[in-house]
């Protein structure tokens, strides 16, 4: 199992398939509040598109996309986005994760405020899930891919 070889067909197939998976993941994240899906599923789709490139191309190719040291700050950024969207509504005199109090610019009704608040939450969850799944893969495959 440890024999390694380069296959241009596998790499080309992964390169062909990966952007569409990523586009579908972004679609799932941005339509998560009124259709099936959401931050977790969209983030897992984004992570699987990145892991597909990593498992097909090895480390040298995957360094061009997302570097290995960059996954931990991205996970922290996702959690901070989630927590900040919850905590800003506390600062504006309401409950934690109560999107009615979020200070979005413009004259928005409470329903629209909830709509955009959930969208911000979903983006945070998506970034965190994507970064953590890629980080798990990187730590498990460390030192094993020579390509």
């Amino acid at each position: 199992m440890r024999t390694q070889f380069e296959s241009p067909i596998v790499l080309l197939g992964a390169r062909l398939l990966s952007p569409y998976i990523m586009l579908f993941g972004i679609y799932v994240i941005f339509h998560g509040h009124y259709s099936p899906g959401g931050g977790f599923q969209g983030g897992a789709l984004l992570a699987s598109s990145i892991i597909l490139i990593r498992i097909a191309g090895g480390r040298l190719v995957s360094r061009l996309q997302i570097k290995e040291f960059f996954t931990t700050p991205m996970a922290a950024i996702g959690v901070i986005v989630y927590f900040a969207a919850g905590f800003i509504s506390v600062l504006y005199g309401s409950y934690f994760l109560d999107y009615e109090a979020l200070p979005f610019p413009g004259d928005l009704t409470p329903a629209e405020l909830r709509y955009y608040g959930i969208l911000v939450i979903e983006i945070g969850i998506g970034i965190a899930v994507m970064a953590i799944l890629v980080m798990i893969y990187d730590h498990m495959a460390r030192g094993e891919d020579y390509a």
Binding site: Q41, A44, L45, A47, S48, I51, I55, L133, I136, Y137, M140
Partner: peptide, 10 residues
Amino acid sequence: VIGAGVTGIL
């Protein structure tokens, strides 16, 4: 997504 995609790779 999880069971058929990510878990298999892991």
